[in-house]
Write a protein that binds this DNA or RNA. Structure first.
Lengths: 179, 179
DNA sequence: TCCATTTCAATACGGTCGTATTTATATCGA
DNA sequence: TCGATATAAATACGACCGTATTGAAATGGA
């Protein structure tokens, strides 16, 4: 029993939601705002995602999977902790202006109940789980990872100003640590 | 012409606001919630701070000044960029559980319009402004600073799990870089 | 063709929020 | 004591939000 064919592209809706958060802040993320940005109706958004919590969950999930694919493509067969961190750093380094969706998504999640970030928590924790923090070499890798995250967050949030040369130089330093 | 004496403690109101953000998220920060937590009325909060934007601005300002005092106490007469970063790292390292107000305040600001962070922007930028990023030694200091910020943010946001031994070991590494 | 079904739009509703307005309370100078 | 004034509470208002409900449009099978 197939009914009316789908005319709303979920991906486009998620794009619109990300754009709203990135441009006007997570506070202004609403069904109505997303609908207007995606050029559909508020009810259409609700029909596609049900609740706002589910919309946010979808945003997180899509971005996490996307970033993971990027990381895995960069590293080869070597799936060690240090290798994954290296891929993570490279992916972060190359994230262009338009791809600030990551921080946008994080902000959105954190805006809601703090425990909403549980999904991303596993994602982040896994990055460090393979390291033995009692060993200096592994701590160095963790330090490089944390520096990359700090640089990324502070820059995407507009809290520090790094031009491209500084950005690349810093990530080159981080990558030389994990290699 | 002195009128009715003040009975509301602004500091207590700010404490309540921080606690709300830290515990239930920035989304639930409202005059009414703050009033209830501070055991006064919604109108009292409004009278003290005028607008919500001003309340948030007050939160940011108070925390920034508090953290700066902490940093300046830790470093002596040496006000070089590296010395300030060292003090910053130490202050971050010693920030106890109860003093998660920093991330709480940041989240609150970022929740509003993104340009709301302009005040904090200057604060962060000044941390790196004294460094010459073309010199490896200065980049190392910047890297340590960024690692500290990354560790702090990810931990306060509940995205990574570091026990006290790991936390202290990482900050010891960072501090050894800037010294 | 007609009905079941899926998809989405229209509309409505209860709740909360920030703020404006009005009222009450407490102090000091005259 | 009596305004004038500063402080805070009470109340009200308009806007927006998330969601529930209802209705319309488009498909396929009987």
């Amino acid at each position: 029993m197939a009914g009316r064919p789908r005319s709303i592209d979920r991906e486009k809706v998620l794009d619109a939601a990300e754009a709203i958060v990135a441009q006007t802040g997570a506070a202004s993320l609403s069904f109505e705002a997303v609908a207007k940005a995606a050029d559909i109706t508020k009810s259409g958004v609700q029909y596609c995602f049900g609740t706002k919590e589910n919309l946010i969950r979808s945003m997180i999930q899509r971005w996490g999977e996307s970033f993971d694919r990027d990381v895995m493509e960069r590293i080869g067969a070597d799936r060690s902790a240090r290798s994954i961190i290296r891929g993570h750093l490279e992916a972060t380094r190359d994230s262009d202006e338009a791809e600030y969706s990551r921080s946008a998504v994080m902000m959105t999640a954190l805006l809601q109940r703090p425990d909403q970030v549980a999904a991303s928590r596993e994602w982040y924790t896994s990055r460090l789980s393979g390291l033995d923090m009692t060993k200096k070499a592994d701590r160095d890798a963790a330090l490089a990872f944390l520096a990359g995250e700090g640089a990324f967050m502070l820059r995407t949030l507009g809290l520090i100003d790094l031009d491209e040369a500084q950005w690349n130089a810093l990530f080159a330093d981080m990558l030389s640590i994990v290699r």
